[in-house]
Computed example of a mutant assay.
Amino acid sequence: MEKIFFQELLNSTIEGILIVKDGFIEEINIAMLNILNYDKKEDVIGKLATGILIPNTKKKYLEYNSETYEEISLVSKDAQIIPAIIKIKDLKIKENRYKLVFIQNLTELKKKEMLLLEQSRMAAMGEMISMIAHQWRQPLASIAAATSNLKFRINLERYEKEVFSKKLSDIDKYLQYMSTTIDDFRNFFKSKKEKELVSLDEVVENSLEMIEKAFENNNIKIKNNRVKLPKIYTFKNELLQVILNIFNNSKDAFKEQKQEEEFIVTINYKDTQLYQSIEICDNAGGIKEEIINKIFNPYFSTKDKKNGTGLGLYMCKIILEKHCSGQISVRNENRGACFKIKIFK
């Protein structure tokens, strides 16, 4: 009777459950069989638990329903890799000691996460188009001025070779600059998923090249206390997206301030045995203390609905934690907000 009740109790949960003794699977519930795509308990009971549960090379943890779980991978019957979270409890029945393993399938959650990431990248694309407009406005105006000058001279039949050569050379220079700008932004949107050996200070420099015109147009000064950092393996484009998002947040925060003092964004770097860090600070008034702990939550935005999706900083957190072995934090300091990005080695 007790055994039947115990079986019904195990099978009533939506979580997958394994009972493990001395490393071998003693019992499994129906939810876990469905996750692993097995038909019968007998196909699993008696096998080593490590044949099904694959821990990550680096331990990762996830908050889920106010509980902390470790992220792992599962191997299904058809050898598919399934993302999951796991929590283990010690269990003693009479004189026997067991491990009670609770498992939650993350497949659907990961799909939603990828959709959010794509939505975030689309929002970033809008920002990029705006930045291209800023980058191109001046060279286009210069090209227009040069061509008008040449047309004027043609109408007057003044064909000075040196003047024409100089104007055409200037036009070529402006076109080369515009072409380089397009290459920079095109590289940002490449769906490259391999880690690259990059220097974090170079990634910051790349992002500054993309946003400098927008900063100039908003009278924002950049103080880049650049330190040459050793190169590390990480996802460059994802990290670039995070840094650009923080810069854009500073730019938007400055727009809401009256310029009573110089607008400044300061960038500092640090290299330790465990991690490298980038700290981006502004003097745009900071973040209200009552909301500072919420800004990395999904769909939470300090901007109005027209200008904010509430996904930017949330996706920064997801990108750093899930893809770049990093983390992000924020604090108020010196009449502004300071964002700190850590990438662990």
Rank of each mutant, 00 (worst) to 15 (best):
L274V: 05
I211P: 00
T147A: 14
E202N: 11
S169Q: 11
I220H: 07
I319G: 03
F235N: 15
L100G: 09
K89F: 15
E256D: 04
I103P: 02
I243F: 11
K228P: 00
K270Q: 10
S191R: 00
K167G: 05
K305M: 09
E162L: 06
Y177N: 15
I52S: 00
A84E: 06
G51I: 00
N297I: 02
Y38V: 04
V20S: 01
H323Q: 05
L197H: 12
D183K: 10
E95Q: 08
K99Y: 04
Y98A: 06
T181C: 04
K58I: 12
E63P: 00
V203N: 12
Q176L: 15
Y98L: 01
E2Y: 08
S325A: 09
F5M: 12
T181L: 00
E205A: 15
Y61G: 03
D201M: 06
D184H: 12
Y69M: 14
E238L: 01
M131R: 12
G326A: 01
A123Q: 05
E216T: 08
N297C: 08
L200P: 03
I232T: 09
I319C: 03
F263L: 06
G336D: 01
N218F: 05
K94A: 14
Y61Q: 08
H134M: 07
I93Y: 11
K192Q: 10
L239F: 02
L208N: 10
L197R: 14
M178A: 11
N237V: 00
I85Q: 04
I328K: 13
I280M: 03
I243S: 03
L168H: 08
N268R: 15
G46H: 09
A124D: 07
K192N: 11
C281G: 03
S165A: 14
